[in-house]
């Protein structure tokens, strides 16, 4: 029992160190990498444009549901006018960054882990090394840099759409004055709420893209076997661990900033 716990702890610490070195190496290798801007733009397209529909859909429904639930709860106390406050603070402080990150993990993160796993399997990563091209600089760094921009942008979009969703529920469907809703939003949201939201988005972006890249890149080291099974296992691991780390990091950041 003790031996098993010790072994798991050592293995966790080793993986943590390995992951830190992996991301550090990726950022370090980006310095002096040729045509990096073009690859960053491509990664931004993959993470941003391709994930746009899912962000918009989940954002609007989150706002709609919050508006609906919030209205009936506040109605019991005669405080419907605070619906804007409830929706905006819930979305901007918590739901926006967390749900946007989870959607990005599901769409872009899983694709990234699978793509890198297949590239590892088909020796494309080894081919880069034999050509004297740093695989970290060519494959990983652009994705990490793109995440620094895409996650905040997608989160901001998610929050905006979510606020509109709350407005549709409260004003158009349940009869609350739009002016009451939006003035409550304006009064409630402070600049530090927006900063907290963006800080979370950047942190989640770095952690999740880093984790997905790490698992895909090291698919050949998977204990689950080789080939397609290793790619599948590493992709699953990447998505599960990224989802957990989003929630854990959210709690830690919130507890420091609240």
């Amino acid at each position: 029992m003790v031996r098993s716990v010790g072994r798991s702890t050592l293995s966790f610490v080793q993986a943590l160190g390995d992951f830190t070195l992996f991301t550090g190496h990726a950022f370090g290798s980006a310095l002096g990498s040729r045509k990096l801007g073009r690859r960053v733009l491509r990664a931004m397209f993959e993470q941003g444009v391709r994930c746009l529909p899912v962000i918009l859909i989940v954002g609007i429904f989150t706002g709609l549901v919050l508006g609906l639930q919030g209205y009936y709860v506040l109605n019991r106390f005669g405080s419907e006018s605070l619906l804007g406050t409830l929706v905006s603070l819930s979305i901007i402080r918590e739901l926006g960054p967390v749900l946007a990150a989870l959607m990005l993990v599901g769409q872009a993160g899983s694709a990234l882990a699978a793509e890198l796993g297949i590239q590892r399997n088909s020796e494309q990563i080894a081919a880069l090394e034999t050509m004297g091209i740093s695989s970290h600089a060519y494959l990983i760094a652009p994705r990490l840099i793109a995440a620094l921009f895409v996650y905040p942008m997608q989160t901001a979009l998610f929050c905006t759409i979510g606020l509109w969703g709350g407005s549709i529920s409260g004003s158009m469907l349940l009869g609350l004055e739009p002016g009451v809703y939006w003035s409550a939003v304006e009064r409630a949201v402070e600049s530090r709420d927006v900063s907290e939201c963006l800080l979370k988005a950047v942190t989640f972006g770095l952690l999740t893209v880093g984790l997905c890249a790490y698992h895909g890149f090291n698919a050949h080291r998977s204990k689950s076997g080789t080939g397609a099974r290793a790619v599948s296992a590493s992709t699953t691991r990447a998505v599960v661990q990224s989802s957990i780390i989003v929630l854990a990091a959210d709690y830690i950041i919130t507890s420091f900033l609240i």
């Binding site: 590239q119 020796e123 494309q124 081919a127 034999t130 050509m131 004297g132």
Partner: peptide, 16 residues
């Protein structure tokens, strides 16, 4: 060595 050497993989290792 890497500058002056090329490697042709069994699987070709082309970027799809």
């Amino acid at each position: 060595f890497r500058r002056r050497c090329s490697f042709l993989f069994q699987s070709n290792a082309l970027f799809d």
